[in-house]
């Protein structure tokens, strides 16, 4: 059995989670400051959660495809995103973004505003407040969001297939491998991937549920 889909899936998911962690954290932080237009901004940032994967794939291709201005710009440096694992990572990032963003926003909003106000009156700047106070205080929620978006990336299928295709050893992820195996009527191969996916997904969710208890025991 060719295990390359396993490695490719994890490579894509780790890259996508890293992108989404930074962007999700910064945007969630920014949104906690907005008052006017917050409902709209929040809705736009959460859109990938409800749109069909094909719509997301379509939009991503429009933005990074070889006919787009960004695609042409990157092409002049010899960088191609469509049909590469990097493109798959971008697709996974876009699709899992709302999971990270909403989770972190919720965690940051849980931080006691009195503590933040105290920090301000004591002369601390906003970035210092974020890194030294808000992130440590919101850590359990942030960690849970990272785990959940990573799991979402692992399970990504539709947008990835449209953007990165199904190139064995290059862009074929586990979920795509199940699809391909079924197409070629290789039920036993499909079942192997299915069992593997179910087991690690379950493992991740169990670990996530145990995180609060582990933290409590340490404290």
């Amino acid at each position: 059995m060719d295990l390359s889909p396993l490695w490719i899936t994890f490579k894509i998911s780790i890259a996508a989670t890293a992108i989404v962690f930074v962007t999700g954290l910064l945007l969630a932080w920014g949104v906690t400051y907005t008052r006017k237009g917050r409902a709209v901004i929040d809705a736009v940032l959460s859109l990938p959660l409800v749109l069909p994967p094909t719509v997301m794939g379509f939009l991503i291709l429009i933005f990074i495809g070889s006919n787009s201005s960004l695609g042409k710009f990157l092409d002049s440096f010899g960088i191609k995103l469509v049909f590469t694992w990097q493109g798959a990572a971008i697709a996974a990032a876009v699709v899992s973004f709302p999971v990270m963003y909403r989770g972190i926003r919720g965690a940051l909003e849980q931080v006691d505003t009195e503590v933040i106000n105290a920090a301000r009156t004591l002369g601390l700047g906003e970035f210092l407040i974020l890194t030294k106070i808000m992130i440590p205080m919101a850590a359990p929620g942030i960690i849970a969001s990272v785990v959940l978006s990573f799991a979402r990336c692992l399970g990504e299928f539709g947008a990835t297939l449209m953007v990165a295709g199904n190139i064995p050893g290059k862009t074929r992820t586990m979920s795509v491998a199940v699809y391909t195996a079924m197409q070629s009527s290789d039920r036993s191969l499909a079942l192997k991937w299915v069992l593997l996916i179910i087991s690690y997904s379950l493992l991740i969710l169990v670990i996530m549920n145990l995180l609060p208890a582990i933290r409590r025991r340490r404290a």
Binding site: E114, A118, A119, G123, L124
Partner: peptide, 27 residues
Amino acid sequence: ARKRRVGYLFQNYALFPNMTAFANINM
């Protein structure tokens, strides 16, 4: 607020819960 130099003692202290007493002041 951070440039006002107005010390505010909060009702519920509003200490930084993730830091030791030393770090709360040294911050």
